[in-house]
Simulated assay, not measured.
Amino acid sequence: MDVFPAFVPLIGRRVGLAGSGEGRAARHRLLSASPAEIVDLHLSDAADPRSWAGMALGFVADPDLAACAAAAAAARAAGVPVNVMDRPALCDFTVPAIIDRGAVVVALGTGGASPLLVSRLRAEIETRLPPGLGRLAAYLDARKDVLRARFPDPADRRVFLSGLLDGDLPQALEAGGEAAADAALFPALESGTAPPGRLFSLPPDTPADLVSLKACRVLAGVDLLVLGEGADTELAALARRDAVRATPADAPPGLVVQRLAEGRTVVLACDPAPYREAGLLISPLPVAR
């Protein structure tokens, strides 16, 4: 990872924008979709650090390299991270390609190495993200206190939410609004019933770059990943970061049965025979070849 992605809260914050021309207009269009207060600065004023005081971020876009450098230095002197359009050497951060779904924001970047590649990836990914995704995230955020009270353990809460998101809640919210979604959420909260655990398998010699989209989605939500001898080590990189990685010796069938009873998702990247012999039902994940 050459750069570290981070999200800067903008509610109630001020963002400085200096420059002229189409580049500045493009940055203004980008920032106008945020809740931040945009402070327009003339380039002559932008060379003074006092003009940047109290800003969360700074943006500069202008054909004049010297003016850009002076504005960037002033912002930095004021302790404000600054981005200068098309001048990576003057930047504290780069601007990613953004997919905006309100409460859900997806950012893609290469650290400025290939904006065209990122733009193409953005177009491909955007078609897979439903427009109502942000509304769903905002709905769950408004009910996070209720969810945390019912499921204090984050792992139990994640299992419960996974079942809801795989069930009728998203469709209920889309079709009938919050009242319909509540009708799906609160009875499930009262019952506290965990969704059934899921057990999947991948051939242990599956190269990570040949894993199918469905398998990637399962690995992104896996709780226990069992890696057998010869398994591609890159498979572990596709799994959820806080998922448990184990060898077959550390995750015998009895332990897997226990995890499934807790509603967990388990992926076997190992010989599945011992688990089948224990009576476990395993769903093979497709591999793109």
Score class of each variant (00 low, 15 high):
residue 1 M to R: 04
residue 255 L to S: 06
residue 155 A to W: 05
residue 12 G to C: 03
residue 241 R to A: 03
residue 88 P to S: 07
residue 266 V to E: 09
residue 198 R to L: 15
residue 188 A to R: 07
residue 71 A to I: 05
residue 106 V to H: 06
residue 168 D to F: 02
residue 262 E to Q: 14
residue 209 D to S: 07
residue 42 H to T: 12
residue 40 D to I: 05
residue 243 A to D: 14
residue 34 S to Q: 01
residue 260 L to I: 12
residue 236 A to C: 08
residue 146 V to I: 12
residue 276 R to P: 04
residue 50 R to K: 03
residue 237 A to P: 03
residue 52 W to T: 05
residue 235 L to K: 14
residue 74 A to N: 10
residue 79 G to R: 13
residue 61 A to K: 01
residue 169 L to A: 05
residue 262 E to A: 14
residue 42 H to S: 13
residue 143 R to G: 08
residue 51 S to M: 01
residue 117 L to Y: 01
residue 35 P to W: 00
residue 123 A to N: 04
residue 62 D to A: 03
residue 59 F to H: 10
residue 31 L to S: 05
residue 120 R to V: 15
residue 162 S to A: 12
residue 166 D to G: 12
residue 118 V to S: 15
residue 274 P to Q: 15
residue 160 F to R: 13
residue 40 D to A: 15
residue 139 Y to T: 13
residue 125 I to H: 08
residue 269 A to K: 02
residue 156 D to Q: 15
residue 11 I to V: 01
residue 261 A to L: 14
residue 196 P to Y: 09
residue 191 S to R: 14
residue 259 R to W: 10
residue 208 A to D: 06
residue 257 V to D: 11
residue 76 R to W: 05
residue 286 P to I: 14
residue 254 G to F: 08
residue 217 R to E: 09
residue 113 A to C: 14
residue 43 L to K: 08
residue 129 L to C: 08
residue 161 L to K: 04
residue 117 L to H: 02
residue 212 S to V: 12
residue 158 R to P: 10
residue 67 A to C: 08
residue 178 E to T: 09
residue 50 R to H: 03
residue 270 C to V: 11
residue 51 S to R: 00
residue 70 A to S: 13
residue 24 R to Y: 00
residue 247 T to G: 11
residue 247 T to C: 09
residue 273 A to T: 14
residue 195 P to H: 14
residue 79 G to T: 11
residue 265 T to M: 13
residue 186 F to V: 04
residue 259 R to I: 08
residue 131 P to E: 15
residue 174 E to S: 06
residue 85 M to C: 05
residue 182 D to W: 09
residue 2 D to I: 00
residue 32 S to R: 14
residue 47 A to Y: 04
residue 284 P to S: 13
residue 178 E to F: 07
residue 51 S to W: 00
residue 67 A to Y: 06
residue 228 G to S: 06
